[in-house]
Design a protein around this nucleic acid. Structure first.
Lengths: 256, 256
DNA sequence: TAGTGGTCTAGACCACCAA
DNA sequence: TGGTGGTCTAGACCACTAC
């Protein structure tokens, strides 16, 4: 610990900005195990006096590591090395529901409802669901947790013909749809990454600006009718999506 | 412009921190089109005097928007609204190479090589490629650009039996492998999101901490032998991966 | 050369948490 | 109540860009 926050070595002119040097020292200490998950760091003011830097500079180094998910800070309490997070792997090629997916691997699932209502659709929802003029929409918004850890924010929209009573969904949306004979058999997903805004980050228990996996899904019935339009935001540090790929058809047989 | 940086309204006690209020004002102006892509913002010092805030506070607001990809800053030049980026969509279910994928949609592809060498493998590479003790590895690292815009960093590792001469790869790795009769026919990918470090961010031309899509791929021959181990980092703001899902086999027929 | 963003400082007050 | 992180300020110097 003394070595990390030693005032020595900060005067090398070619070593870059001071906050980056400190950031690198702390990151190296975590990577090297000298700072283990759960360990506390000295208070910001103490790090400042120990290193001979100003508190603002120390804060800039720490903030970068908080944003990257390597440290966590609790006001009034202190700064700590982030706990090791167990990465969940989910197969992306199968159309399963969150609830079923977690049950399959023996995890508990809790949902915290943010909204479960009938409302006026956004232009995006009108487009995706093919709604008529004046038609309203069922919207389900919830934070998904597994074993107490928030994993994803899920915002599902369905036409009222598909789901007249949103309040009837307690846990699995797909289970409700299945009862109504309206479970999707095919879906198209689009995946991208983006930085989480303050609100979404708080819901997921990570720092503002942390990387999240954004997944947009449109589910279809066998008839081709759209049943669901879902936008999810997964914690980037807690989720791995696995996909199996096969050779592109147009290239088949031309190999070798 | 005057409205955005007006000193009025910053005294409301319930509106949260000043830097968040300013951040919201600027973000709203961009979303509402009052600030269009390419537009320049006043200098930081000017924004500070206009709003009555300190430069540090203005900077904190601006930095957050830079991290989120909504603004770009150029030292000595100014602060600008980020140009609209064209999102590329790539099918995730087919095993295609970057080069072929871009060619199919009529885009030019350039590679900037970071490394193309035979070297000592990392433990991760030994594991993924199933290398023997003392065996060396061919490593290909490059930044992929399309129409001049950097899109991804690709780091591919192959055993020397698969690719004895890394320098023989000029554009498409898969084309070279195909010539040798070693093109993979199956691959497993793992997808997650993470914040880009300073170095990777610079290579992709985005701000440090921006969200990136991390993809790890292991490619196999028909025999089941591993041919390639590739770790890629895509710009989160420039890429959409599309996947089509079908009903999980175990649920087939139980629908309705 | 003038203007811009990038870094850094010393000091202050507030809100929250734990003993 | 004392310590912690969260916010904010005024002022300074540097490195780079554009002219």
């Amino acid at each position: 610990m003394e070595r990390i926050f030693s005032p020595l070595g900060f005067d090398d002119p070619g070593a870059g900005p001071l906050y980056l040097q400190l950031q690198r020292r702390i990151a190296d200490a975590i990577a090297g195990g000298r700072l283990a998950p759960g360990n506390s760091l000295p208070a910001e003011r103490d790090m400042a006096t120990m290193t001979g830097l100003s508190r603002v500079t120390v804060r800039k180094a720490v903030q970068a590591l908080v944003a990257g998910g390597q440290l966590v800070q609790r006001r009034g309490s202190g700064t700590f090395v982030a706990p090791k997070i167990e990465r969940l792997e989910q197969a992306l090629s199968l159309l399963t529901s969150f609830t079923e997916d977690m049950a399959r691997r023996g995890k508990t699932v809790e949902s915290v409802w943010l909204a479960r209502q009938v409302t006026t659709p956004s232009p995006e929802e009108v487009m995706a669901l093919g709604l008529g003029a004046g038609e309203r929409v069922a919207r389900l918004e919830r934070v998904r947790r597994s074993d107490g850890v928030p994993l994803a924010i899920e915002r599902a929209s369905l036409s009222l013909q598909t789901l007249p009573d949103p309040a009837s969904v307690e846990t699995s949306l797909y289970a409700v749809l299945q009862d109504r004979g309206l479970r999707p058999v095919r879906a198209v997903q689009r995946i991208s990454a983006s930085n989480l805004g303050a609100k979404d980050a708080e819901l997921l228990g990570v720092a503002t600006g942390a990387a999240g996996l954004r997944i947009e899904r449109i589910g279809y019935l066998p008839s081709g009718r759209v049943v669901e339009f879902t936008r999810s935001l997964y914690r980037g540090d807690a989720y791995d999506f696995a996909v199996e790929l096969t050779l592109a058809p147009s290239l088949e047989g031309s190999n070798g």
